[in-house]
Structure formats: structure tokens, C-alpha cells
């Protein structure tokens, strides 16, 4: 079973949760990142994620292995979307199961924080104004 996946279609959260079930676990923590209708004062209509999948999957699995080793949780999985997304869709889901809740919360937080900082994934926001911009990249291109 792969721990980290990229998908171009809606994430089935019920199926995802099944993968984390374990009789030794008394705690399950799940984080979902949703498409939000605003960012930095601008109204967002939809998003597009570009993913460099070969490296995102490799690095994503590395992050999950780190979380399991560091916090001693029983199972951890994550799925990130690619492509166009509408408001309130789940862009990312992280699930962690463990005997007790403390390490499950910590591991879940670690996975989403590291994923945001390390995975080769880029988000383009489409605004009500008709403009579209890559997030975090206001200075990536010099004006022509």
C-alpha cells in the first residue's frame, strides 16, 4: 500500500479512512485542506495545482516515514490533488492512527507542515477579477 499519493480526481474520504483502521489504535486524527474562497483580500473562484509527480510522491513518502519514526504512530497516509479544483473541495488529506491521541495530533501536524514546505506542488489561484496568479511567487518573474 502506498502511503502518499497524488490524484487528479475527488478524494474518497471514506475509503481513505479505511486505510488507517487498526485494532491496536485508539486514536485517529485526520486533516483536510479545503479550497477557500479568498486569499490576501482577494476573492478566489477556483484553484489549479501543478504537481511534479515523480518527486512529490518520493518526497511525500519520505515525510510519512519520518513522521512514523519520529512520533511512533502506527499508520500514516496522505493524498494530494492535482489539476483544477472548485471551492470547498478537499485539496489534501492527511490521516494518522496510533494507540493514543497525542502522537497522532503531532504526527499529522508534522506531515502537513512538511508537505507544504517540501513537495514540488504549485497553486494557481483564479480571482473574481479575471486575473490568475501563482501563490508565493509574486517575484518569480521579472516584468517583461
Amino acid at each position: 500500500m502506498k502511503s502518499f499519493e497524488i490524484t487528479g480526481t475527488a478524494i474518497d474520504l471514506g475509503v481513505f479512512r479505511q486505510r488507517l483502521l487498526d485494532h491496536s489504535c485508539g486514536a485517529y486524527v485526520q486533516f483536510e485542506g479545503w479550497v477557500r474562497d479568498h486569499n490576501e483580500g482577494r476573492k478566489v473562484l477556483r484553484l489549479e495545482y501543478e504537481v511534479y509527480e515523480p518527486l512529490a510522491v518520493k518526497e511525500g513518502n519520505r515525510i510519512i516515514d519520518e513522521a512514523i519514526a519520529r512520533f511512533g504512530v502506527t499508520r500514516a497516509c496522505a493524498i494530494h490533488r492535482s489539476g483544477l479544483m472548485e471551492l470547498s473541495e478537499a485539496a489534501v488529506v492527511v490521516g494518522v492512527s496510533s494507540p493514543h491521541r497525542g502522537e497522532a495530533f503531532d504526527a499529522c501536524r508534522y506531515i502537513i507542515d512538511q508537505a507544504k514546505a517540501r513537495l514540488p506542488i504549485w497553486k494557481k489561484e483564479y480571482y473574481e477579477s479575471g486575473m490568475a496568479e501563482w501563490v508565493n511567487c509574486q517575484r518569480c518573474a521579472h516584468p517583461a
Binding site: L55, A91, V92, A115, P120, I121, N136
Partner: peptide, 10 residues
């Protein structure tokens, strides 16, 4: 060599 602009997953 792959050049990645600042990432923004999640």
C-alpha cells in the same frame, strides 16, 4: 536539473 519556484502545496 529541475528548477522549482517557491512551492505552495496543501
Amino acid at each position: 536539473v529541475l528548477f522549482f519556484p517557491p512551492v505552495a502545496g496543501g
